[in-house]
Simulated scan of single mutants.
Amino acid sequence: MRDLVQELVSHYADLRRQLTRDLRDPHHAADIAQSSFERVYTHTLGLRDGAAIESPRALLFRVARNLCIDEARHRKVAQEWAVSHAVVGTHLTAPSSEYVVAQHRVLRRVVETMEQLPPRRREVFLLFRAYGHSRAEIAQRLGITEMAVAKHLLRATIDCSRVFAELRHELIEPQAVNSHAGFDTALAEDFS
């Protein structure tokens, strides 16, 4: 048994160098090498008397490789889980009453502004923005030139832009909330 331990120790430095090259992290390589050494040693303690390991070096390197593979698989599963739960766990909450009131106020002002536009300008704007007609389609439908359509669109856009500039400070954005944030925050505060 003592000879086996000495042989494993003699290959330990080679294993660490190999793992450091493969993993590019000397601390992580040392952890994997240590775990590999422990597993091989524990395995040899469980062998029946007279049973011997044919190549302790090969077994040590094979155990280390398997540990790296297991860890890579675990990391991949953990990352996939984190990505899937980040998408599922983050969602929009029900809008706050302030948000709903602000949006109704903005909508009311936009409707008022649209109603104050001259009828032809309002019709051109709605056909273009709401119904997605092209300028040529609008010109043909209303019997006016495309240049007139462009002027009506420009003036309507300027009128609406003024309203939005006035209302910009009233706009409230809905907030995305992580459904677990409260729990995590409370848990973090318990340990600090």
Rank of each mutant, 00 (worst) to 15 (best):
T44A: 15
S97P: 09
A64N: 03
F61I: 00
S55Y: 05
H104D: 13
K76H: 13
E80P: 06
G46P: 07
D14H: 00
Q103W: 11
S36W: 00
R16E: 13
I69W: 09
V111R: 08
H43K: 08
V77F: 14
H27I: 04
L45I: 11
L107M: 12
D49F: 08
A13L: 13
T20D: 04
V111D: 08
Q116K: 05
R24W: 06
V63L: 04
P56H: 02
V100N: 06
E98R: 11
H104I: 11
T44R: 07
L59A: 14
P26L: 03
A30I: 09
V9W: 09
V88E: 14
L47H: 00
P26C: 01
S35I: 08
V88R: 11
Y99A: 09
V106R: 05
V111Q: 08
S36F: 03
R21A: 11
A29K: 09
R24Q: 11
A29F: 03
V9M: 14
R109M: 07
L47V: 02
W81M: 15
L107S: 14
A86H: 00
E54Y: 00
C68A: 04
R21T: 10
A72F: 03
H85Q: 13
H11Y: 13
A13G: 12
Q116F: 01
E80D: 15
R73Q: 12
G89I: 06
R16H: 13
V87C: 00
A29Y: 04
C68E: 05
R62D: 09
S97G: 07
A33W: 02
N66E: 08
Q18E: 12
V101K: 14
R39T: 12
A33D: 05
L23I: 08
N66G: 03
S36R: 02
D14C: 00
V100T: 12
V111H: 07
A33R: 07
R108M: 14
R62F: 02
V100Q: 14
A78N: 13
R65V: 07
